[in-house]
Design a protein around this nucleic acid. Structure first.
Ligand SMILES: [Mn+2]
Ligand SMILES: [Mn+2]
Ligand SMILES: [Zn+2]
Ligand SMILES: [Zn+2]
Lengths: 142, 142
DNA sequence: CAATCATTGCAACATTGTTGCGTTTATTTA
DNA sequence: TAAATAAACGCAACAATGTTGCAATGATTG
């Protein structure tokens, strides 16, 4: 309860600070992501939202897009065609790698992994960013 | 014409060698991939197939799956939710990174990029493989 | 409180890939 | 070469994930 209220207020503050409209949907969504240490899918976010809050699929998609635009969250691609979302902490402001369990599909950020090395490209190619996913078995699955 | 026939015969040989049935579909598909230096999508393969060969979407999907199982091709994930396929050469037998242009979506293999370093994981996690995509602008787009 | 316009809900659509099943065909066997 | 067989195929239906258009709602401001 107490934790929830704290997260709720944190989320509200972050959203208000970003200059958008403060809606209960956005607050609840960001709260869910702040409470989670993993990167989770649209579906998983839906399941973690309070039952009392009825929220359309599309609204959830648009809220997530908005939160990502405002740099409050980031989204990660995966081989199962589903984006995964995670709240931004200070650690996450720079580029970082991710780990995905090939058995349970859980995905975590690997904040310690330095990936800022120079990646040599063919002549004429210009580097923008890197996407790195280590795959294997998580502690629970191995 | 000559090139085509040569690829065609190479493809046929590879397929026969893999112990499956040698069908015109599989030969044509593998020929397309052998002729291509980029990793291309299901859709793009479809477009490159000869008009004379009518081939069902599903058959193409299943042929690609079979070719990948036999290690004649490999498939690469992307942020646009579409697998990309590429013929296996000797270079590609080991793990390698890929480059994807953020403007034209072309994707190439970065065979020179050594990614076999040790990636430190949290305790209890077990490494299996790594997926690395460098994003930026290709020579044509930059 | 009223005005405004960002946000939402709903229906429809798009894309990519998968599954079930009856038919065809490549290969083997006689 | 002809028949038998199992693999491969075509078709229809389905599934998962995400997007678009538009009218209704509601957060914010004055
Ligand atoms: Mn992350
Ligand atoms: Mn490759
Ligand atoms: Zn796991
Ligand atoms: Zn390009």
């Amino acid at each position: 309860m107490f934790m929830f209220n704290k997260l709720h207020r944190t989320a509200e503050e972050l959203i208000r600070h970003s200059g958008g409209r403060v809606t209960v949907g956005r607050i609840r969504i960001l709260s869910v992501l702040l409470a989670e240490q993993q990167a989770i899918t649209h579906r998983e976010i839906e399941q973690r939202l309070p039952q009392t809050l009825q929220l359309d699929r599309v609204t959830l998609y648009r809220a997530l897009e908005w939160l990502a635009d405002k740099n409050l969250i980031h989204k990660v691609t995966s081989d199962d065609r589903a984006w995964r979302y995670h709240a931004n902490r200070e650690l996450h402001t720079h580029q970082h790698a991710h780990f995905k369990c090939t058995r349970c599909a859980q995905m975590i950020c690997l904040d310690d992994l330095p990936i800022e090395r120079s990646w040599p490209l063919p002549a004429g190619y210009r580097f923008q960013e890197i996407e790195l996913t280590v795959k294997g078995l998580c502690a629970d699955c191995s």
